[in-house]
């Protein structure tokens, strides 16, 4: 299309959510809030990541991870959720795949649980409210 040639692209930067081979990093979002799931998905999708699945509790998150494995690159994991909390779900995911890259999403005031999650093997954590810069920075750090 001619228009594309007329305007120089100012956006030559490769999106951070895309691997060297051009395929997107695949993400599983585990959160019981529809709002947070949507927020994380929008931020990641806008940077080239692909949200391949979502889960609304820790148990479902664990099941999805096992189904997707090894075709999954990173997990965002809420802490307070019904059925199985995020820290237990993390523990079981790490038992299943010790290389799993899981990033905890926490409300303020959950330092003890965040600390526990990091000791178990979470790669990083993000404290809510979430913003684009914070989410991308923490997730990119954990996959690079």
């Amino acid at each position: 299309m001619k228009t594309k040639m007329d305007f120089p692209s100012i956006n030559e930067r490769k999106p951070e959510g895309v691997k060297e081979d051009g395929s997107p990093y695949k993400v599983l979002v585990v959160d019981d809030s529809m709002f947070v799931t949507k927020q994380i998905s929008q931020i990641l999708t806008s940077e080239g990541f692909e949200v391949v699945a979502t889960a609304s509790d820790g148990l479902q998150g664990l099941e999805r991870y096992k189904e997707l494995y090894p075709d999954i690159d990173v997990v965002t994991m809420d802490i307070t959720m019904p059925k199985m909390d995020g820290v237990t779900s993390l523990e079981k995911i790490i038992e299943f795949d010790k290389e799993a890259k899981v990033i905890m999403i926490s409300a303020l005031g959950k330092q003890d649980l965040v600390k526990k999650a990091l000791l178990i093997g979470a790669k990083n954590y993000i404290v809510k409210p979430l913003d684009r810069v914070k989410v991308l920075e923490r997730i990119i750090q954990s996959i690079k």
């Binding site: 809030s33 709002f35 409300a107 005031g109 809510k128």
Partner: peptide, 19 residues
């Protein structure tokens, strides 16, 4: 979605206050 959003707002405010 709108209700989940207001819930999350309440969660964030409460978490900060409780801390």
């Amino acid at each position: 979605l709108a209700k989940a959003t207001i819930t999350e707002l309440a969660n964030m405010i409460t978490a900060q206050a409780v801390t």
